[in-house]
Design a protein around this nucleic acid. Sequence first.
RNA 1: UGGGGCGUGGUCCAACCGGUAGGACACCUCACUGUUAAUGAGGAUGGUGGAGGUUCGAAUCCUCCCGCCCCAGCCA
Length: 439
Amino acid sequence: MAENCTMTTTTIEQAGKHDGQEVTLKGWLYNLRESGKLLFPIFRDGTGIIQGVCSLKENPEAFAALKGLTQESSVFITGKIRAEKRAPGGYEIGVTKLQIVQRVPESTPFPIQLKEHGVDFLLDNRHLWIRTPRQAAILRIRAEAIRSAREYMDSQGYTLTDAPMFTPAACEGTSTLFEVNYIDDQKAYLTQSGQLYGEALAMALGKIYTFGPTFRAEKSKTRRHLTEFWMLEPEAAYVELDEAMALGEGLVSAIVQGVLKNKSRELETLKRDAKKLECVKPPFPRISYEEAVAVLNKNGNPAKFGDDFGGDEETIISSSFDRPVIVHRYPTSLKAFYMQPDPQRPELALAFDVLAPEGYGEIIGGSQRIHDYDLLVKRLREHKLPEEAFEWYLDLRRYGSVPHSGFGLGLERTVAWICGTEHIREVIPFPRMIYRVYP
RNA sequence: UGGGGCGUGGUCCAACCGGUAGGACACCUCACUGUUAAUGAGGAUGGUGGAGGUUCGAAUCCUCCCGCCCCAGCCA
């Protein structure tokens, strides 16, 4: 583009800084409204959308190029940026020159209209659906959530490490593992949690976190489940339950405040009420499992000691508070084999969940881990887990075992709550669900 | 895996108690100098998820199959 060399090339996000100047944008035609000898194209470029104006009288060549141009055709747009109250976004570009990079053929128009579509159609066209302003906003918020989360963990002295995706056996149960053919005739499984590896890394580096995809072959078909989702899992040596809960509370707060600070425009695009997020700061209310049962009973729910909480119960509990609530000390029988019993009340595990408001459910699950060798072996046997597969894990209790704690934060559930989306599938670029692996 | 719901042009929906399958959007043409999912007029294309059954006649009723959605379990 030799002729563009003298022209400022910018993005829609930066357009406001070029008020009154002629610039070039590289993007796509999002929509085109016609009004006689005036055209109102809407352009998008990945950073935002901006309305253009093109008049036949002033710019006949650009007008001719633009008239009848199809949705999502890729274009270079040159024109003058100006503040304009009538334009969505506050600025518009007076198009003086338009170069078509690729014209979408009329015979195969872009399938995603500006009208409503059904879920199945949108998911079949997920590769195109992500171009819409709403989906783009969600993905930018997801990116900010990740950035804020890592910034917070780093600031707390935690080192990012990585757990493997291929694992030799289960971390918890075996029923929900994806089995894959490994080299030769070996079997391997896709990880369902990096936690056990995180524990080993914590004994090496002190405070660590892993962040990556996890896989669960659960036959869950609810708005809160994916078969592939991302989890941030801190694990720290010499950290006990209270400190782990404080870390979880700080992490969730940092994510929410980061999004509020840096992605307010995207929250507006989603029409998300920021007031519901502004109060998400420490301290979060903390209630014990037994107190939670009492809250449920008071609200007419027949839960009793030993029952696990389902979606309904979580919603009742979380709706009593304006921010996430921490529920701690669940019955040992409900929790995983590696969770440390409360020394005062061995029937309770030093475990905690963080429940998001507005019915988004559990976004964090964590605990203090068993550090005593004999107790851990006993629990492995009680849960009928293959001890051989856990030999390396038992080593962690043979060689300088210390009290330690950790948790897993579900990225998609957290982002779904922040964005206020109906379903978790919207907050990951290409959702993997029980009956969907396309596209 | 259970419970509930839904499958109609490319998309989103309508069609009474079983009686000629229709509209909007998208696409094309025309009009319109401030549109906001623009509007108005016209045009072409094209469909009852599949297989049986009941009936003079089935999108509609029955059986089976397929697909999807929601809820529960499990979990993040």
